[in-house]
């Protein structure tokens, strides 16, 4: 392969990883940025999305159907957890964070308990590989990228342009005033949480289409999600997409050019630097949800 082909190849590989990271990051940026819930178990939501997909495909369902099931299941789980647990921590985000750590431990090990800790994979939903010049393009990666673009664009439009999005942003600006204007703030919080969870479910389905997953996949993925969300600016979907692209491509290159053992370090280093020098993110965001004094 020529050097330029390798280069393009790495960009493509990086883009598909970036897609999954972006899906998590959009979920995190919406939930953390707009409701103030710091849910570190978001990576486990993703993992469970992957597990549901794996179960459904193993049971003979087609991949698209399995992905829809994953979205529904994780969205439902998000609803249950928000109503049952997180809504009691809205006033104390740190407590919500600690609770989510407990949730990580519970969700990981429940999955281990029922479906053992081994790697799980599904047959690739699309097997075609296109050869363009010297570059091999796996259609499954293209599928992941396209789905992510569509879903993120839809979420972006929902937040920025629709009535609901406007009401949501109003309730982030000033919860009390928004409530006085007749916006059902609590219901919006639940809604955002469920939307973010559903995105994680989709992310899990796409992830298992690309790579095998284990019950512990969520741990590293969620850190990347938080890194991207914070780098892009909390609550800023556009920023999350941009930061997700940067991180995905950096990771793709690093893996492609022989530094794969450092791949996981970039997100942490980038995040630490951004928090230090641009606490509102590179692209501007909410200053974090009503910081506890």
């Amino acid at each position: 392969m020529r050097a330029v082909d390798i280069f393009i190849q790495q960009i493509l590989n990086g883009l598909s990883i970036a897609s999954v990271i972006t899906l998590i990051a959009v979920g995190v940026t919406l939930i953390f940025g707009l409701t103030g819930i710091i849910n570190f178990a978001h990576g486990e939501f993703l993992m469970i999305g992957g597990i549901v997909t794996w179960l459904a495909v193993s049971a003979g369902l087609s991949f698209p159907l399995a992905a829809v099931l994953a979205i529904l299941a994780v969205g439902l789980m998000g609803y249950g957890l928000e109503r049952g647990i997180f809504r009691f921590t809205l006033e104390r985000p740190t407590n919500g964070f600690i609770v989510s750590l407990g949730l990580i431990v519970v969700l990981q090990h429940v999955v281990v308990l029922f479906w053992n800790p081994n790697q799980k994979s599904i047959p690739r939903p699309l097997t075609t590989v296109w050869e363009v010049g010297g570059v091999r393009i796996a259609s499954v990666r293209v599928m992941v990228i396209l789905i992510t673009i569509a879903v993120v664009a839809l979420s972006f439009r929902m937040i920025t342009a629709s009535r609901y999005g406007r009401a949501l942003r109003a309730s982030v600006e000033d919860r009390d005033t928004a409530a006085l204007m007749g916006i059902p703030v609590r219901r919006y919080i639940t809604g955002v949480f469920v939307l973010g969870s559903a995105l994680a479910g989709l992310g899990g389905a796409l992830l298992i289409a690309l790579f095998p997953i284990t019950p512990f996949t969520g741990g590293t993925m969620v850190m990347k999600g938080f890194a991207v969300a914070l780098i892009g600016g909390l609550g800023n979907i556009y920023g999350a997409v941009a930061a997700g692209l940067i991180l995905g491509i950096v990771e793709g290159f690093s893996a492609g050019y022989g530094f794969s053992q450092w791949t996981d370090a970039y997100s942490f280093v980038l995040m630490i630097l951004v928090l230090l020098f641009r606490p509102h993110g590179l692209f501007g965001g909410t200053s974090g949800p009503r910081m506890a004094s």
């Binding site: 600690i98 750590l101 407990g102 519970v106």
Partner: peptide, 9 residues
């Protein structure tokens, strides 16, 4: 571990 997580919550 499941018990710990649940206890913590």
């Amino acid at each position: 571990r499941i018990v710990y997580g649940a206890c913590l919550i």
